[in-house]
């Protein structure tokens, strides 16, 4: 940390106060805090994965993972998540160029792709429920629903957040608050993609074997 001479006292005397110090960079502090929050969110997923690992074989005579997962269907969801993250990445590139239409346009694409993912997921779970494959059937299904839908809930919250941010970019431009939130949303959206990789691998790929 730079110890600036504030000009107080005579030359050679010890500087005790730093009038020029105005603290920290607001955006970096805000995004750091959000990153800390992401750590706690990671622990939520870790615990759900642990519960799934314990309960995956507890099917109580009901359907097993092999009976219900469709890796190719989930692969379609994977493609949508990753395209959405890519679109969001372009939105952040537009942020560096300070282009409002660029940020909003790319984010709209990310939103549509994310909504597509959510649509596929809802379709899958409605289908399961129609066939009586509900969480109350067995411990395995309880943990299956809880884990996949926790990720889905995060995705849904991310979509609401994107809507809010598109409005804020339109209304306020790139103020400090808005930029800090956009960067936090970037972490959030990337993190959900990473979590989906885990869900896809552990539940859909491993489950199909």
């Amino acid at each position: 940390m730079a110890m600036k001479n504030s000009g107080a006292g005579s030359p050679g005397s010890v500087v005790l106060w730093d009038e020029g110090y105005h603290g920290h960079d607001v955006i970096s502090t805000r995004t750091f805090g959000f990153w800390l929050y992401m750590l706690s969110d990671a622990m939520i997923f870790a615990t759900l994965f642990a519960a799934y690992a314990v309960l995956a074989s507890h099917t109580a005579g009901g359907p097993t993972a092999q009976n219900i997962v469709h890796p190719w269907y989930a692969f379609g969801e994977t493609v949508l998540v990753f395209s959405s993250v890519l679109a969001f990445g372009f939105s952040m590139t537009a942020l560096k160029a300070a282009s409002r239409p660029g940020v909003i346009g790319w984010m709209l694409l990310a939103l549509v792709l994310g909504a597509g993912f959510l649509g596929l997921e809802i379709h899958e779970f409605v289908g399961l429920a129609m066939r009586g494959i509900v969480p109350a059937r067995s411990a395995f299904l309880s943990s299956y629903w809880a884990l996949v839908l926790t990720h889905g809930l995060h995705m849904a919250l991310g979509l609401i957040w994107m809507l809010v941010m598109m409005y804020q970019v339109m209304r306020y431009g790139f103020s400090t608050d808005v930029v800090a939130r956009l960067l936090s949303l970037k972490y959030f959206w990337l993190f959900q993609a990473v979590m989906w990789v885990c869900v896809f691998t552990v539940i859909y790929l491993h489950g199909a074997i």
């Binding site: 519960a51 314990v54 309960l55 507890h58 099917t59 109580a60 009901g62 969480p135 109350a136 059937r137 067995s138 411990a139 395995f140 309880s142 943990s143 629903w145 809880a146």
Partner: peptide
């Protein structure tokens, strides 16, 4: 009515 910690239907 899930079965995470119940004594029956696979709960642990």
């Amino acid at each position: 009515g899930t079965h995470f910690f119940t004594p029956g239907l696979g709960g642990d």
